[in-house]
Write a protein that binds this DNA or RNA. Sequence first.
DNA 1: CGAGAAAATCTAGCGCTGCTAGTGATGAGA
DNA 2: TCTCATCACTAGCAGCGCTAGATTTTCTCG
Lengths: 204, 204
Amino acid sequence: MSSSARFSGVTIQNRRERERAERHQLIIDAARDLAEAEGWDAVTTRRLAEKVEYSQPVLYSHFKGKDAIVRAVAIQGCGELARLLRKARPSRGESRLRAAAEAYLEFARRRPALYDAMFVQQSDIPWGTDEVPQELLDAFGELVAAVEPVRGERDLEALTEVFWSSLHGIATLMQGGRLRPVHDETRLDLLLGALSLAQHEDGL
Amino acid sequence: MSSSARFSGVTIQNRRERERAERHQLIIDAARDLAEAEGWDAVTTRRLAEKVEYSQPVLYSHFKGKDAIVRAVAIQGCGELARLLRKARPSRGESRLRAAAEAYLEFARRRPALYDAMFVQQSDIPWGTDEVPQELLDAFGELVAAVEPVRGERDLEALTEVFWSSLHGIATLMQGGRLRPVHDETRLDLLLGALSLAQHEDGL
DNA sequence: CGAGAAAATCTAGCGCTGCTAGTGATGAGA
DNA sequence: TCTCATCACTAGCAGCGCTAGATTTTCTCG
């Protein structure tokens, strides 16, 4: 009796938790889709609620506020970027560094809103050493792996930060239309050359 | 008579235009100050109007909207950055590239809100070849001048874009707390080294 | 099966935002 | 001094993030 009751209670709770988790993800997906389609300005709690076919307060039973939703989108975006970078293997004659750079920039170009949430909009994601989401570490780890072959004697982590910063700068300035499209190719060539040549120097 | 009347009318018009111009600048300054003190979120048309001691609609008789005010702040910020870069002369044993990089990063660090308006927030400032504000050209010109000594055989404009992008990436990622402060020095050393070493290579 | 408890969801509204239409005061010119 | 244009204001709109309280739905148990 009590056992059956408890069992029944547990399964119902399980179903509820499952449905809750599904809706949680539904909200994240809807926010990301809406942002990618019309920009983050269009992502209002009202429109988002309408899109998931619930009323506004439901959003707040899942997330502390709009910022938390954006943060969730950003973190999942980091996971996606990490996956893309891991998949980006250099084709013949291409350096791993270049493959990673091109994958990174293509991600930023094809998902500008997602990229914005991840690296442009300020958020209270803990980037300091404590409690960094795993997705972030994964993405950065992929960059580290791409930089490693050209590190030479240089500090690997700092060099990766330079690589990342350069890519990030290029991505955001391009997105804002602040760089000349004419130089797109040359720019990347120069960056990769600069970062790699130092190794030649070391090797001599 | 008619001449005196016309004369009087002209001076009155002059005074009005002068007062208008002063108030125009007053609004820009107030917006910049408020943004630097409390961030752009705190810059609302109401607070801004209160600060300049006029009612809201006055703002709209000077600017098309809030975006236009931010844009005006951004453009003047570019002028300031250009001035700072021009003033940044390398100390003994320091490359001009390093002097420019340090001046740029210090500007971004000390005036984060201003920097944001200039290079982070998307605006419809025409960065394409047509009608770019002179302040922008000046600032970029200073960067070009700093890069020139290390260009080697490389495309000067593209190389400057790489330099700028890297600085911009470092500035924004630092501001967002996404880079480790431990590497601040090393990071810049690595970047400058990478951009300069290629010249050595060319020189060999 | 039906009553009561519990949980989930909605309606309505607060104070804020950027922005503007229409009103009233101020000062120049005849 | 009177007229009129210019200027700046008050008041208000629609939409924002967010939340308190009412309401509906769902589950438990006699």
